[in-house]
Design a protein around this nucleic acid. Structure first.
Length: 241
DNA sequence: AAATTCGCCAACCGCCACGTT
DNA sequence: CAACGTGGCGGTTGGCGAATT
């Protein structure tokens, strides 16, 4: 057992996992600095947090990445770069660490080789790049904290409504409202595209300052991967909304 | 069968942003 | 305004099993 400076390091034992799970079941996530004293674990707060978020959380998917998920990672990485937490945020049950590991193990070499020897599919992807739409952090739909319904008409002339089905409650088991999902998907990509434009055009100090607040980001309705993918395949029509 | 290399993934480290005092 | 504490992120490492020589 590695024990440097009084804190244990290295692999977690079953007993430690059980203590951590019991603590979080009782007190909930957060207050990571209190975990060691609440559980008696000889681990630092970061180690406890990481162990829970990357391994013990019941929301984590353990199975292999599906084709849809891999495709989503490739597309999002193309837009966002190594923003693993943002990418993972669009892949239910996947952690930033999972995505990062999968990328380095499976996709990094593939992407480099495809850039050196571009295929037809890559060229096609570049051609259908969506039109940029100017957004600012003052857009109403980016700043409606705690709202459960945001109208597209807050931003433009469309009457289409957005229905939030997820919110920030991770324990929610409600199903996403697929009927109303296309608009937030388009808006979400509007945001990404706008970020990419800004990143390409100027030297900004902080990338995160351009993003909508995290809770607003999470309020976008979640959709299953096949639905999400079908929207991505039809970006041209989405940008014309 | 033994030694070596490779691939994967859990875990650690250092840094940064943000809130509080 | 500065110092400090905390949460979170991305890059990197180390260990282990599988594959290869």
């Amino acid at each position: 057992m590695d024990n440097i400076g009084g804190l244990k390091k290295g692999a977690w034992s079953h007993e430690e996992d059980e203590l951590l799970k019991a603590c979080i079941n009782e007190y909930g996530e957060g207050k990571w600095h209190l975990i060691p004293q609440r559980t008696g674990l000889n681990r630092c707060r970061k180690s406890c947090r990481l162990r829970w978020l990357n391994y013990l959380s019941p929301n984590i998917k353990r199975e292999r990445f599906s084709e849809d998920e891999v495709d989503m990672i490739l597309r999002l990485h193309n837009l966002l770069g190594n923003r693993w937490s943002l990418i993972a945020g669009r892949l239910p049950g996947r952690t930033a660490n999972d995505v990062k590991n999968y990328w380095t193990a499976h996709l990094a070499k593939k992407v480099v080789s495809e850039k050196e020897n571009p295929k037809e599919t890559m060229k096609a992807h570049e051609i259908i790049k969506p039109k940029p739409i100017t957004l600012s952090t003052h857009q109403p739909w980016l700043n409606l904290k705690g709202k459960h319904n945001v109208s597209r008409s807050d931003c433009d002339d469309s009457e289409t409504k957005i229905s939030n089905q997820v919110g920030t409650d991770c324990a929610s088991t409600s199903q996403p409202n697929l009927e109303n999902a296309p608009i937030p998907s388009a808006m979400w990509y509007d945001t990404l595209w706008n970020l990419e434009e800004q990143l390409n055009s100027e030297d900004i100090g902080s990338y995160s300052s351009l993003l909508p607040a995290e809770d607003n980001f999470m309020e976008f309705p979640d959709v299953d991967n096949s639905f999400w993918d079908s929207n991505l395949c039809d970006l041209d029509s989405l940008w014309d909304l």
